[in-house]
């Protein structure tokens, strides 16, 4: 699949501005990036992926330095070419593409529990992996709750037992 061909498929339908770039690794595998300004345009891209018989591989999110904003990256595959779609959300929500691409199902559910990013219109509201004893958005925090509360990590506790054993 040529990147220009894919661009033709999306350019007339996208509402906001977007950037298209391409990189490749030392083995010659190309990697396309679609960087969206308007996060609603995810649906346009997802439909184009579907039209090319592609699939959603996975999605990633990370917290930005700017307060309360997250960058979300979807990774798609069209017959061996990776297409990455990047967008920014400032209200911890995105519009689900699972109704268009079933293969995005788990990736979006995980985004919800790991980053507390709501996935609007996702067909399933259950948690996927994260136990209900844990609060949503665990990957937003850098320091674990127990360390925050007691100032001690499990490693600290175990090593103090070793040191006691060595003394006695």
């Amino acid at each position: 699949m040529k990147i220009d061909e894919f661009n033709n498929a999306i350019k007339s339908k996208i509402t906001g501005a977007y950037e298209l770039k391409e990189d490749s690794d030392s083995y010659g595998n190309s990697n396309a990036w679609v960087i969206l300004e308007n996060k609603r345009d995810v649906e346009v891209v997802a439909k184009a992926i579907k039209a090319y018989k592609g699939r959603c591989v996975v999605a990633t999110a990370y917290k930005n330095e700017k307060e309360n904003t997250h960058t979300v990256v979807y990774h798609f595959d069209i017959n061996g070419t990776i297409v990455n779609m990047q967008l920014v959300t400032d209200n911890q929500s995105v519009h689900s593409i699972t109704p268009i691409l079933k293969s995005a199902d788990w990736a979006e559910r995980e985004m919800r529990e790991m980053y507390d990013i709501e996935v609007l219109g996702h067909p399933c509201s259950d948690r996927l992996f994260l136990d209900y004893s844990l609060v949503k958005g665990v990957l937003n925090e850098y320091i674990s709750l127990s360390k925050m509360q007691t100032g001690l990590s499990d490693t600290d506790v175990l090593w103090s037992k070793i040191n006691k054993g060595a003394e006695s």
Partner: peptide, 9 residues
């Protein structure tokens, strides 16, 4: 489909 490492070389 997207060979890497020695599979590409």
């Amino acid at each position: 489909k997207a060979p890497y490492s020695l599979y590409a070389l």
